[in-house]
Amino acid sequence: MRQIILDTETTGLRVEDGNRILEIAAVEMVNRKLSPPDRHLHRYINPGRDSEEGALNVHGLTTSFLADKPKFADIAQEFIEFVRDAELIIHNAPFDVGFLNMELGKLGLGKITDYVSGIIDTLKEAKELFPGKRNNLDALCDRYEVDRSARTLHGALIDCELLSEVYLCMTRGQDSLLMDFVAADDAGSAQEAALGLAKVARGPLRVRAATAAELAEHAAYLDGLDKAVKGSCLWRTLEPKPEAAA
């Protein structure tokens, strides 16, 4: 499975205001393993306009630095071929996708979804995993103990590298399943490998009954919940009602 961790830096936040992409990075990952740096794509782009002050403070890429860099039109085909048929992994995907669609549209090249197999938004996934918490890239790096000490300014390449580590941490439960499948040489043997997992012998399910002390502790906890809600808590309604004496 080929995936591309992608990030862009832009001259401003709103594509509707005529802002453009000025940096793009795409880091390749195959079967959940990062490819060597020579299999990554990183380009600075002359956007043909100045950055808004707020954006410049974030990425630090000045108009003079970008003056001799290629236009997006000059790297468009290279970019398309690099991401073709891969699955994109983007943090806050609607932002980057909106700018990519604008740049491609100006060249009559359609939309980014015309070239890739799918798009994963790690911000959306993080919000589902950690509702109500900060889920920007810095917060996720701190949560998963990913070293971000080298990130003094936002940069597309370093953000891709950090996001790749965060994504692997967020989805680490997929590792063993994926390894079982990629070890197979073709679709037939992959299916056999999957069926082989299902044939592993399993003993009868053991059910351990709660002790009297555990039942008493549970009942006391439910009494506390009843008091808090001034009635019967949900667990009380789910408990089986005692059978009436004959």
Score class of each variant (00 low, 15 high):
residue 6 L to N: 09
residue 6 L to A: 06
residue 7 D to P: 04
residue 9 E to D: 06
residue 11 T to L: 08
residue 11 T to D: 07
residue 15 V to C: 08
residue 15 V to R: 15
residue 16 E to N: 09
residue 16 E to R: 13
residue 19 N to R: 14
residue 20 R to P: 01
residue 20 R to N: 01
residue 22 L to D: 02
residue 24 I to C: 08
residue 30 V to Q: 09
residue 32 R to E: 11
residue 34 L to R: 14
residue 35 S to E: 15
residue 36 P to T: 09
residue 37 P to R: 11
residue 42 H to W: 06
residue 43 R to Q: 14
residue 45 I to D: 02
residue 46 N to W: 05
residue 48 G to C: 10
residue 50 D to L: 10
residue 50 D to S: 13
residue 57 N to L: 12
residue 59 H to C: 08
residue 61 L to G: 03
residue 62 T to D: 10
residue 64 S to T: 15
residue 64 S to M: 09
residue 65 F to A: 09
residue 67 A to F: 09
residue 68 D to R: 13
residue 69 K to M: 14
residue 72 F to P: 10
residue 73 A to F: 01
residue 75 I to Y: 09
residue 75 I to Q: 06
residue 79 F to V: 06
residue 80 I to K: 03
residue 81 E to A: 03
residue 81 E to T: 05
residue 83 V to N: 02
residue 85 D to C: 04
residue 88 L to K: 09
residue 91 H to E: 08
residue 92 N to D: 13
residue 94 P to N: 07
residue 95 F to Q: 04
residue 96 D to P: 08
residue 97 V to A: 02
residue 98 G to A: 15
residue 99 F to N: 07
residue 103 E to D: 07
residue 103 E to L: 06
residue 104 L to N: 07
residue 106 K to E: 13
residue 109 L to V: 03
residue 110 G to Q: 10
residue 113 T to L: 14
residue 115 Y to E: 06
residue 116 V to C: 15
residue 116 V to K: 07
residue 117 S to H: 10
residue 119 I to K: 02
residue 120 I to V: 15
residue 122 T to R: 11
residue 123 L to V: 05
residue 126 A to W: 07
residue 130 F to I: 01
residue 132 G to C: 05
residue 136 N to C: 05
residue 137 L to I: 14
residue 140 L to R: 03
residue 142 D to M: 04
residue 144 Y to W: 05
residue 144 Y to H: 06
residue 146 V to W: 07
residue 146 V to N: 05
residue 150 A to M: 12
residue 151 R to V: 02
residue 153 L to R: 15
residue 155 G to V: 00
residue 155 G to R: 15
residue 156 A to H: 04
residue 160 C to K: 10
residue 161 E to R: 12
residue 162 L to T: 01
residue 162 L to E: 06
residue 162 L to F: 04
residue 164 S to P: 00
residue 167 Y to R: 02
residue 171 T to D: 03
residue 171 T to F: 04
residue 177 L to Y: 15
residue 180 D to Q: 14
residue 180 D to G: 11
residue 184 A to K: 07
residue 184 A to T: 03
residue 184 A to S: 14
residue 185 D to S: 13
residue 186 D to Y: 02
residue 187 A to D: 13
residue 187 A to C: 07
residue 188 G to C: 00
residue 197 L to A: 12
residue 198 A to K: 10
residue 199 K to M: 13
residue 202 R to C: 09
residue 203 G to S: 13
residue 203 G to I: 05
residue 203 G to M: 05
residue 204 P to T: 10
residue 205 L to Y: 01
residue 205 L to W: 00
residue 206 R to A: 13
residue 210 A to S: 13
residue 215 L to W: 03
residue 218 H to E: 14
residue 220 A to E: 14
residue 221 Y to V: 04
residue 227 K to E: 15
residue 228 A to E: 15
residue 230 K to P: 00
residue 231 G to N: 06
residue 234 L to M: 11
residue 238 L to Y: 11
residue 241 K to N: 02
residue 244 A to C: 00
residue 245 A to R: 12
